[in-house]
Each structure stands twice: as C-alpha cells, then as structure tokens.
Design a binder for these strands. Sequence first.
DNA 1: TATTGTTATACTCTATAACTATA
DNA 2: TATAGTTATAGAGTATAACAATA
Lengths: 148, 148
Amino acid sequence: MSSGATELGRLLMAAHRAFTQQGRARFGEYGLSPARVRLLTVLHRSPDSRMRDLADALGVSGRAITSVVDALESDGLVERKPDAGDRRAFRLTLTDAGLSAIDRIADLQHRISEEIFSGMSAEDRSDLARLLRAYLDTTRDSDAERPA
Amino acid sequence: MSSGATELGRLLMAAHRAFTQQGRARFGEYGLSPARVRLLTVLHRSPDSRMRDLADALGVSGRAITSVVDALESDGLVERKPDAGDRRAFRLTLTDAGLSAIDRIADLQHRISEEIFSGMSAEDRSDLARLLRAYLDTTRDSDAERPA
DNA sequence: TATTGTTATACTCTATAACTATA
DNA sequence: TATAGTTATAGAGTATAACAATA
C-alpha cells in the first residue's frame, strides 16, 4: 500500500481547506485573520512572550511577527512593553480587548467546530483527534532531529 | 465532552501546518507553490477545463485564476486555447512540461508523505485516512445544503 | 560578534470593482 | 442582461537583507 501516505497528505490538505473555508468568514467578521488568531492564542498560552520567541513558536520570520503585532497593537489587542532585562526586546501583553478576543476566539472555534464535525459520530471524532495527536507527536520528534 | 470538537479543529490546523511547512520548501525548489500545484492537479483530473470552472472547483475568485494561469503559462506548464463553442472562454491544457510537473508533484507528494507519516503505524495511517474521508464526506454534504 | 526588532523591498495568494468581448 | 476573462487596485501574510540598538 505504497500510496497510502500520499493519499493521507492529500486528505489532510483537503480537510484543512474545508475547515478553514468555513471558519475564515466567521472570524473575519471580527477582524480575526488566521495569523492574528494564532499569535493571540500562543501569547495567551505564554504570557509576556518576547517577539523573537513568538516567531520561533509560530515558525515564521521575525519580520512577519512585526507586521502582525503592528496590526494587533493598532487594533488595541496587544501591547509592546519594554523588557526589564534586555533593552533590545519587547514583552507582549494582551489588553482587556485582547482577552475579550481570546474569549471570542474560543467561542467561535467551539461553535464552528461543533457545526463542522457534527456529521461525525462521537467515536469517530475522538479517534480522529487521537490519530492527529499521534501524527503531531511524530512530526515534533522529527523536527527535533532536523533543526535545519 | 463538549470541547472535543474544538480540540479537533485545533488539531487539524496544527497537523496541516506541520505538513505544509515540510512540503513548501521542497515544492518551492521547482517553482511549485501550493496554488499552482492545486491548479495543475485539478486540471490534470479535468482536462481542457475552462478558467471559470477551475475557479469554481478551487473555490477561489476568477481573478485569482488569471494570476495563477498567467504564471503557469509563462513557465510553459499550461496553455490557453480558445474554446470552440464560446469565444469569450479559454480551455486550458497541460503542456509536456506541465505533464512532467504533474509527475514531479506526484513523486514529491509521495516522498514527503512517506517521510512525514513514517512515524505512524500502518494501521493508524489507514484509520486516519478513513476518518479524514468520513469528515470530508460530511462537509461535502453540508456544502451542498449551504450553497451561499 | 551575536541578537532583537525594525525598515525597505518584494513575492504569492486572494479579493472587489470596472471593463471588454461575447452570449 | 448575463457571463468569461481581463485590468486596476488593494490587503494579508510571508521572506530576505540591511540596519540600529543593545548584549
């Protein structure tokens, strides 16, 4: 079954596309693009992160972080604050509006996901989640081996 | 377990990201961006498509198709040919170089997928493929109900 | 010297709107 | 009138490279 893996890749791409095309419009109503949602989510999990660390966590260039943070800051969702121990760096914090955005994101993710996965049985959903987690674990390992 | 669906959405996003970040660089070496790969693949499955039909199949605007086709045509991978029955329209065909690109795409997808999913057992991989297919079936149904 | 974050610049992908040529 | 595809224009997201300030 040598084409199994190829098929998996295609399925993963197709599933992602189906999922995001449903969600993009809903998030867009609140000015929440995928890149902004990802940065806010990571920042919420790791408060007071430096921009450099966010770039690493998100797997993008430092330049990309500047753009997204500029946009989020001008929308009042995050704030740059000087790093006490390193005057080159900024610490990012979520404003109250940013925390509200986090709530809205969680709510939207919940509702959209419920809608979108409602056609699958509970068992299939939990199996799918388990297998995706297993996949992510293996890629994280191979990433570590391949620091490039 | 009301957060199961939310978790699934996040996992799907993360898995897609892990997958594409591995593949993007490899495809990029051949000038094959995601949008170009998708168009070539759809065109290969539906030869002599009109641009309008490609836009619908890919779920993007007509404008986006013009850009991608311009790029592919200037790289010599596709050709615009007049539609015999409708002088407003073009039929797209893959050139020999385009067919070679299709072969390269298949080969790369195969190799990358093998690498990336090699950490999972054969059983987990086939289960994951089955569940992704099940998910895609349900979204295709709900798309049909929601022609928007 | 190395690192943090910025500015400068450019590319891909996408969108809407106005337009031309046809249907 | 409606449709196929284009040009004009714009915006998000990303990248590399050169730079400033700091480590």
